[in-house]
Design a protein around this nucleic acid. Structure first.
Length: 603
DNA sequence: CCCCCCCC
């Protein structure tokens, strides 16, 4: 026929626990498992030409192949990696086949038909005597008792002894007799909470096996009992956790459920985890330069040298009033790029960056600010310091030989698209390049001189509350109403909203300064400026005219805004700085080099 | 039962 021949009869052997290397099978059907779970999962009917098995599933990393139509009916595949596992109640459990790696040998469209007349392996196996006796459900004698004082490891040991663990993907709240064998991929620190419903402490961990992943959380007593035992990268047997729907708002894990440890929960370290069944943590390492082009809030795995380390900072969140500790690092890599990485809590406190270690991170989040992107290590993220992997040794060699000395691309730099070379722009170029016409604002900086500063409407009366800057309504009788706070106040504060025309050597534009940049440029507080504009025109004139014909470096935000049926390209001053001649001349020299080719890289 | 990660 010209197609790969099927490994006739192997399904019965596989399902009885034999280790069959790379069997060749045919997919007869594939369908999405219907459940109220959000996790996407496919069940397949697979045949060796003699037997079929309808209790087979794809590990989620193969979903992509199904999306691409590579696993259609009649496709002949080679299973490169698979495990069998028990689902269902003890004793009456079904053994399922979970496929985690496969190679397509012949496309279904090419094969076009079912090969052979396969029958279900369960019936056939009895007649055929291919199958050995079912695996024993009694514990093996040599299973060691755990030394962690679990008093509930009877189910655990019985299952371990019988080699009957369950795939994570089969866990649900409807069934609690199970044992999973899973690798811990991340672990949070211990966190305490206190709210109207009570207080306590907890830590969470992410678990992974061949079939999928799940978040588990240990509260209070369980938090104390298991925190030290649970180590990232180790493999454990877990049983008797409570399952509940995962709140997708807080978890990016591919599982509709999450688990909570209970008093019944048993955990046991798996000493011989190197049997290949539990996958290693996979790092999808991205060069730092590529983070520039990634979406805000996306997850990033990367590796770099900690070139610089910031001080430990403690602060209180303005929104939640909680205390936080953080530390910012600067990572550099061979893409000649640098990015800021924020550590939190104990990671921040305990970090020693002065030795410039290699930092490997998984699952960090991108935070975008003013066009720059930085990374933050959050819950579910992993950080490894000086990991023993080839990429780390390569980076070490590169950096120790001066590799990080000429980092050109500051991914976390504010303004601009993340590249220093696009940072500077003339006002004319900003127009010519249609800056601000996209969904997101564009940022650039330019050197410009102030031509005119408008005194009209340069301030407004704002809500006196520290965090509310909404314009108040004058109710008369010295009463001011804030519609956001829904409150009446006897006072208000002045806020600046200054429009000025600035020009560089190519063009001039009107730009808007808000409070902070306005105060900085006018060298007076908003209170002083507001009072002068209302009561003392001579002083106001003095303050405003002092700004005329002064030069500054303006960092500008550029965005198209719609007013009625008009679209206007609006420039807002993000920050303003004095003219740094050294830096500005460096920029001019660079442009000259690019324009003339004189003194370019060969020198 | 948490689910917060600020500020620029």
């Amino acid at each position: 026929m010209g197609f790969a021949s099927l490994s006739s009869g192997v399904i019965a052997r596989i399902m009885n626990g034999d280790d069959v290397v790379k069997p060749v099978l045919q997919i007869l059907a594939i369908k999405k498992i219907n459940s109220n779970a959000d996790a996407e999962r496919y069940r397949i009917l697979i045949s060796d030409g003699k037997y079929f098995n309808s209790y087979a599933m794809l590990a989620s990393q193969l979903n992509e192949m199904q999306h691409k139509g590579q696993l259609d009916e009649f496709t002949i595949v080679q299973l490169d990696k698979y495990v069998t596992s028990m689902v269902g109640k003890d004793g009456a459990g079904k053994r399922v086949l979970i496929i985690s790696e496969l190679t397509v040998l012949n496309a279904g469209a090419e094969v076009k038909e079912k090969i052979g007349e396969p029958v279900t392996y369960e019936n056939a196996a009895k007649q055929d005597k291919v199958a050995k006796a079912a695996p024993p459900v009694v514990p093996k004698k040599e299973v060691t008792q755990s030394n962690n004082n679990n008093n509930n490891n009877i189910t655990l040991n019985a299952s371990i002894g019988a080699g009957m663990t369950h795939p994570i993907s089969s866990l649900s709240p409807y069934q609690n007799k199970w044992v999973i064998k899973a690798r811990v991929t991340s672990k949070t620190g211990i966190r305490t909470w206190s709210n109207p419903r009570g207080e306590g402490k907890l830590f969470s961990m992410d678990l992974m096996d061949e079939s999928g992943e799940i978040r588990a959380t240990a509260f209070k007593e369980q938090c104390d009992k298991y925190f030290d035992m649970i180590q990232v990268d180790s493999v454990y047997f877990f049983s008797k956790c409570q399952l509940k729907p995962a709140n997708k708002q807080f978890s990016q894990l591919n599982n509709a459920y999450e688990m909570t440890f209970t008093g019944e929960t048993a955990v046991q370290l798996c000493e011989d985890a190197d049997d290949g069944a539990i996958p290693d943590i996979k790092y999808n390492l991205v060069p730092i330069s590529e983070v520039s082009g990634m979406e805000n809030k996306a997850a990033v795995d990367t590796i770099g040298i900690c070139k610089e380390v910031g001080e430990l900072q403690a602060f209180t969140s303005r929104t939640t009033n909680k205390e936080f500790k953080k530390r910012d690092l600067t990572l550099v890599d061979m893409s000649n790029s640098a990015i800021s990485l924020t550590l939190w809590g104990d990671d921040a406190v305990n970090f020693d960056g002065h030795v410039q270690p290699v930092i490997l991170v998984k699952g960090t989040r991108i935070n975008e600010f003013n066009g720059g992107k930085s990374l933050s290590l959050g819950g579910g993220s992993i950080m490894k310091i000086n990991p023993d992997i080839p990429e780390a040794h390569k980076l070490r060699g590169w950096f120790d030989n001066g590799g990080g000395d000429n980092v050109a691309n500051m991914v976390s730099a504010r303004t601009g698209g993340g590249s220093f070379s696009t940072d500077w722009m003339t006002l004319k170029d900003a127009r010519a390049r249609n800056l601000g016409s996209g969904d997101k604002p564009d940022y650039f900086q330019c050197k410009a001189v102030v031509h005119i500063v408008k005194q009209e409407n340069a301030f407004y009366r704002a809500c006196p509350q520290a965090d509310c800057n909404k314009k108040v309504v004058d109710e008369g009788n010295d009463q001011y109403r804030c519609e956001r706070c829904n409150a009446l106040y006897p006072n208000f504060k002045y806020r600046l909203l200054v429009n000025m025309s600035v020009g560089d050597w190519t063009s001039n534009r009107w730009v808007t300064c808000f409070n902070e940049t306005g105060e900085q440029l006018l060298k007076h507080t908003s209170q002083e400026i507001g009072e002068a504009l209302e009561n003392d025109p001579t002083k106001a004139e003095e303050i405003f005219s002092a700004l005329n014909f002064t030069s500054h470096i303006f960092k500008l935000r550029c965005k198209n805004e719609v007013y009625g049926d008009m679209t206007r390209n609006k420039l807002t001053v993000q920050s303003v700085g004095p003219l740094n001649h050294k830096e500005y001349n460096r920029h001019l020299l660079k442009e000259l080099k690019e324009l003339t080719g004189i003194g370019s890289s060969s020198n």
